[in-house]
């Protein structure tokens, strides 16, 4: 059937009229903050307590926008007769956001979970030199890093959790007769509690587990 002449014109009018009655999609940004999804690439925050000055981020950065200065300090022996340890101390950690292309390689590569994406994006400057942000600013941005989104229902346990449970199970099987089975379960639950990654409790991840390489290290081997 041939279309009625002018039906296209009427359709066009209907579209505009319908759009008018719908809610508009404009986000009134400065008045209303945008609702950003998790893992938004706004700015890079530095959790400097985790940083060991391994320089991986600075070396992997494609446009070399990360500046790190450090010195070594000697830590006296923990136990009498022990050996003195040397430790890297961070002096400067700066990211030049006028060069940064937000690829996120530094965050991926950091073996100690010291770098994070923050959804914060309001850091425009009037001078390009002011876009080089030092460690205090980067540390401040850590407070804006949201908790990681929950896993999908039915997803595999995170690696830390699975390992902890396996250890706990093994421990329980070793030391206990079959009667204390529920006890082992409890232990497993106790093991998973502190490893739940949220907010500022990232500290426990700074002990690298030797038997469990992080993805960044895998990539380089």
């Amino acid at each position: 059937m041939a279309p009625i002449p002018g039906s296209g014109l009427a359709k066009g009018l209907a579209v505009t009229l319908r759009t008018m009655t719908k809610k508009s999609v404009t986000a009134q940004y400065p008045d209303a903050q945008p609702d950003l999804p998790p893992r938004t690439r706004g700015v890079i925050g530095l959790f400097e307590e985790n940083c060991t000055v391994c320089m991986l981020c600075a070396r992997e950065c494609p446009d070399w926008c990360i500046y790190i200065d450090s010195h070594k300090e000697t830590v006296p022996a923990a136990a009498p007769g022990g050996r003195e340890r040397s430790r890297n101390v961070l002096d400067r950690f700066a990211i030049d956001f006028s060069l940064c292309m937000y690829c996120g390689i530094c965050i991926e590569v950091c073996p100690f979970d010291a770098l994070f994406w923050s959804p914060e994006f309001e850091y425009a400057e009037t001078d390009i030199r002011d876009l080089t942000h030092e460690r205090d600013k980067l540390r401040e941005w850590m407070w804006t890093v949201p908790a990681p989104p929950a896993l999908d229902p039915g997803a595999e346990d995170p690696k830390e959790l699975a390992t902890a449970r396996k250890t706990a199970d093994k421990l329980a099987a070793q030391q206990a007769p079959p009667a204390t089975e529920p006890h082992a379960d409890e232990q497993a639950r106790a093991a998973e509690r502190p490893t739940r990654p949220q907010g500022d409790s990232k500290q426990q991840t700074d002990q690298p587990k030797p038997d469990q390489p992080t993805p960044g290290q895998e990539g380089r081997e």
Binding site: T19, S24, V25, T26, Q28
Partner: peptide
Amino acid sequence: KVMAHMQGRLGPM
């Protein structure tokens, strides 16, 4: 205003 809303915008605010 009408044009804005017909285009899914808000117009001058």
